[in-house]
């Protein structure tokens, strides 16, 4: 794993969205303050988040738990810049990211954040290897990618080997099991050397055994790479493997 991380740091280009990667000490890597988010259903506005504040330290493994509909996934989308809050602010490594341009948010998701979803969200047209390479394909232009393709492929292969999928490189997602797809998604989330991993119910669609394997991988990443992980789950048993748990109730931190 450390070998992979070393290679990653030398190959993956630095982000255009410049986020200072200084040692933050006590200051949180990710800070959400009084986040509010409403969804509009026709003429009715449904409040989902009612002022959530959250701080995540560098290298922390945080679990966000709560009942279905309490706003866990919405919070994760806001933290991952997939959506913008109606009120409140989010800071990542000391810089505000909730009001930045769309292009900067795209760059942030591509280079600084890794995301894992409950339904794996692999691209069905691509092989497992290509799915893992997708963030690098997005990051690099045709010429740049083509020049470095062998290094990228070697990195992706090593990441897939790390999650136990070295024998599934050329397989399409439909040919993989749920656990294998989630492991491929984890490999994809790591390829761009993110400093924050956002996991939305990563075991929600898996059997117990597969779920345990996924949590083991995440735990390993957190411990060995000091990768900050924010994991959303409704399962207290899964949440127990995190360093800290935050409970959301009715759009507020309980």
């Amino acid at each position: 794993m450390s070998e992979v991380a070393t290679q990653l740091s030398s190959v993956v280009a630095p982000a255009t969205f410049v986020v200072p990667r200084h040692s933050v000490g006590e200051s949180p890597q990710l800070l959400a303050t009084k986040l509010k988010k409403n969804y509009r259903k026709g003429p009715v506005e449904v409040p989902v988040l009612r002022g959530v504040s959250l701080a995540v330290r560098q290298g922390e493994f945080l679990a966000v738990v709560g009942q279905s509909g309490c706003g866990k996934t919405t919070l994760l989308h806001l933290l991952g810049t997939l959506d913008v809050p109606d009120q409140g602010e989010i800071q990542f490594e000391g810089r505000r990211i909730d009001n930045i341009s769309s292009a900067a948010r795209d760059a942030l998701r591509n280079r600084c954040f890794g995301m894992i979803f409950q339904f794996y969200h692999l691209l069905p047209e691509m092989t497992t290897l290509e799915n893992v390479l997708a963030p690098l394909m997005i990051m690099h232009g045709v010429c740049s990618y083509w020049r470095q393709r062998r290094q990228f492929q070697s990195l992706a292969t090593e990441l897939l080997a790390m999650v136990g999928l070295e024998h599934r490189l050329k397989h399409r997602p439909r040919e993989l099991s749920g656990g294998e797809m989630q492991r491929a998604a984890i490999a994809r989330s790591l390829i761009a050397r993110p400093s924050l991993l956002l996991a939305d119910e990563p075991t929600g669609n898996l059997d117990q055994e597969s779920g345990r394997e996924i949590i083991k991988i995440l735990r390993g990443l957190n411990e060995q790479r000091r990768l900050t992980i924010v994991m959303v789950t409704h399962d207290p048993a899964i949440a127990a493997s995190a360093d800290r748990t935050v409970r959301l109730v009715d759009g507020r931190v309980a």
Binding site: G80, L82, S102, A103, D106, A107, L108, R109, N110, R111, M115, F117, H121, L122, L123, P124, E125, A134, P135, I138, M139, R188
Partner: peptide
């Protein structure tokens, strides 16, 4: 539609 969402979650721009 979902693939487009996946691409955007991976950092693909609207223009891309």
């Amino acid at each position: 539609t979902r693939d487009i969402g996946i691409l955007k979650s991976l950092g693909a721009s609207g223009r891309g």
